[in-house]
Write a protein that binds this DNA or RNA. Sequence first.
DNA 1: CCAAAAGTGTTAACGCTACACCCATGT
DNA 2: ACATGGGTGTAGCGTTAACACTTTTGG
Lengths: 223, 223
Amino acid sequence: MATTLKPVKQDIKVAVDNVIVTVKDGELFVLLIQMSKSPYKGMWALPGGLVEQKETLENAAGRFLKKQTSVSNVYLEQLYTFSDISRDPAGRVITCAYFALVPPDKYELQTNPKYADAQWWNIKKLPALAYDHEQIVKYGKKRLQWKLEYTNVAWSLLPKEFTMSDLQEVYESILGESLDKRNFRKKIVEQKMIRPTGKKAMRGAHRPAELFTFRSKVAKIIA
Amino acid sequence: MATTLKPVKQDIKVAVDNVIVTVKDGELFVLLIQMSKSPYKGMWALPGGLVEQKETLENAAGRFLKKQTSVSNVYLEQLYTFSDISRDPAGRVITCAYFALVPPDKYELQTNPKYADAQWWNIKKLPALAYDHEQIVKYGKKRLQWKLEYTNVAWSLLPKEFTMSDLQEVYESILGESLDKRNFRKKIVEQKMIRPTGKKAMRGAHRPAELFTFRSKVAKIIA
DNA sequence: CCAAAAGTGTTAACGCTACACCCATGT
DNA sequence: ACATGGGTGTAGCGTTAACACTTTTGG
């Protein structure tokens, strides 16, 4: 690489955008903010913004994540860097997309005065998005599906303790298909990702379900 | 994303670096250039450089690839964007790494006066690399191994016509393990990636081998 | 005729899929 | 007692992995 940094006429701004995902009621949701200024006033977009001079892309993504959801210590992964020349009408901006997985018991949406609104949107029913954000969301969804099959990322979308059905629901909502209960349990048990807590979940007029917890909250390849 | 482009004090340079890979004699090779200026004078590094104001990252990667190898129309994929604050001692530079697969019959190394030298290095015996380039090469190698198993990228590393053994050699050198001849052929034939040309390769004192060619030179997921 | 790589099938183990009934609880 | 979700086993099928000999050429 030849970054001899003689006066170069490069003036490209660097941003990050987060695809923040959670699962509620068996459906996948993405966090979007509503833009309050033109040219995309009123439209929805991924939360993000410019990187600061002295922070890494990952730090920037974490910073914006915290600003919107007040969570930290969640799964955060770089997705892809988008660089179309006219992706931002306001100037030359490239954006590095991250995706974050937020468990349903943890987040609290922040009302940021800078944006008109912030809301979870069902990923199947998204509004029109600003910039190239529709493309980014699609990319993120696909990556999540891959990750789910080959790693233990699912832990990032569940509370500390959960039932086998909760876990299966997460898989089904991400993969978009229903799975066989017995085969699912068998696969999960074989992988040794989770451990029974001994406790039971009493959730209504039926047999209580065993509660599990993840053995390790570190990303691991299980395939 | 809030790129309202009010005067921001962001001054981050954006570069690309290429992990250009080929296979020769059953071994994986990476193209490195030798730096002619301090602070890394004499050390080896990945070919790359700053992105121009009006080009995408992918275009920039293609441009540097062509400069070094005089090839175009080869497989080129974005790897990851590296952004450590002090990864470049000369200033704040983030780099988007790409990897390129070059077939052995196609390239011609360009002698670029800007660099002391450019050479193929066996990936198992790399010299000390400048910047964070060792990390980038490792990352690229891992990605290539994944891609090989789930897609038909191998076409990018072979000449138009090749024998089954040539193909197997590519797989073995990337995966770093030897494969069973019969099972390998069976798998490849089932995947329908290749087609016999009817021709034979006469390469010495042994039975001639059938020559094959790829049906499609477009990246496809085959798993 | 000898050396060298090409080409070819079968079997056993394993993993994946499909599938139906009983259990524990609240009302 | 009934409605609701929780929990369990097995058999068939397809896929993968292991394994050795014959063929065709050049020297």
